[in-house]
Computed example of a mutant assay.
Amino acid sequence: MNLIDIFSSTDAETVTTSVQLLILLTIFSLAPGILILLTSFTRIVIVLSFTRTSLATQQMPPNQVLVGIALFMTFFIMAPTFQEINQEALTPLFNEEIGLEEAYERASTPIKNFMANHTRQKDLALFLNYSNAETPETLDDVPLTALIPAFAISEIKTAFTMGFLIFIPFLVIDMTVASVLMSMGMMMLPPVMISLPFKVLLFVLVDGWYLITDALLSGFN
């Protein structure tokens, strides 16, 4: 049976299969946007990028490593939410216990709960005001069209705050090394070249990757 026959058939079992296939294709096409905007991925990858920039190690770790770490940390953090979506929405839908519309409503609830817990009220109010929406009484009344961008900018703000705090100790090292070189008259020697080993040494001694990972995980508890 080809793809045209699947979507043109009126048999109940075939229609169910076609709906499942359509949902699967839709999820695959929207996966990048869902992963970036509806999960913890944005905050994690920005913080890791800030860490590499503050160390001034150029492309070490490489982009592939940072994105891979952010990806698997996202799966770890979002596992309870994904499990709830699977139990409450996907499994009943595939078992033909509920319809597609009810499955969407059930799947949106865990995602809304996660995003609402990490969204500033100020950011959410901004999008609700611009859309002229009524003040929602419950979380179910909050439209995803307003919650998703509010969650995104809240995550970016939090990530930049964490990135600033990461920058401070390395900035102190750069300023100290630059002052020492200037006092010794070595103005032609790049301070970054001298401070890099000290920054890497400090980061290793304090177990920096552990501390940053712990801070990221704690922020989503």
Rank of each mutant, 00 (worst) to 15 (best):
M1Q: 04
N2V: 00
L3P: 04
S8N: 08
S8T: 11
T14W: 04
V15W: 00
T16V: 00
T17I: 05
I23H: 04
L24T: 02
L24I: 00
I27C: 02
I27L: 06
F28M: 03
S29W: 13
S29I: 15
L30S: 07
A31M: 13
P32L: 06
P32N: 04
G33S: 05
I34H: 07
L35E: 01
T39L: 12
T42L: 10
R43Y: 07
R43N: 06
I44C: 07
V45C: 08
V47D: 07
V47K: 03
S54N: 15
L55S: 08
A56C: 01
A56E: 15
Q58P: 00
M60T: 14
N63W: 03
Q64V: 12
V65G: 01
L66R: 05
V67D: 02
I69W: 03
I69R: 01
I69V: 13
F72I: 15
F72T: 15
A79S: 09
A79W: 10
A79T: 06
P80F: 09
I85Y: 02
I85Q: 00
E88T: 08
A89E: 09
L90F: 11
P92L: 05
P92I: 06
G99F: 09
G99Y: 07
E101I: 14
E102R: 00
A103H: 05
Y104W: 04
E105M: 02
P110K: 01
P110H: 06
P110L: 06
P110V: 06
K112Y: 06
R120Q: 12
R120F: 10
K122L: 14
K122S: 14
D123F: 02
L124E: 14
Y130T: 03
S131M: 13
N132G: 07
E134T: 09
E134G: 11
T138C: 09
D140S: 05
P143R: 11
P143T: 05
L144D: 11
L144R: 02
E155V: 03
I156A: 04
K157G: 12
G163S: 08
F170T: 05
F170M: 12
L171D: 03
V172I: 14
V172S: 05
T176N: 04
A178M: 09
L181Y: 11
M182T: 15
S183W: 03
M184W: 15
M184C: 13
G185R: 00
G185A: 05
M187E: 10
L189A: 04
P190H: 11
V192G: 09
P197Y: 15
F198H: 10
V200W: 10
L201A: 14
L201Y: 08
F203W: 13
W209T: 00
W209Q: 06
L211W: 13
L211M: 13
I212M: 12
I212P: 08
D214R: 10
A215Y: 00
L216I: 13
F220E: 01
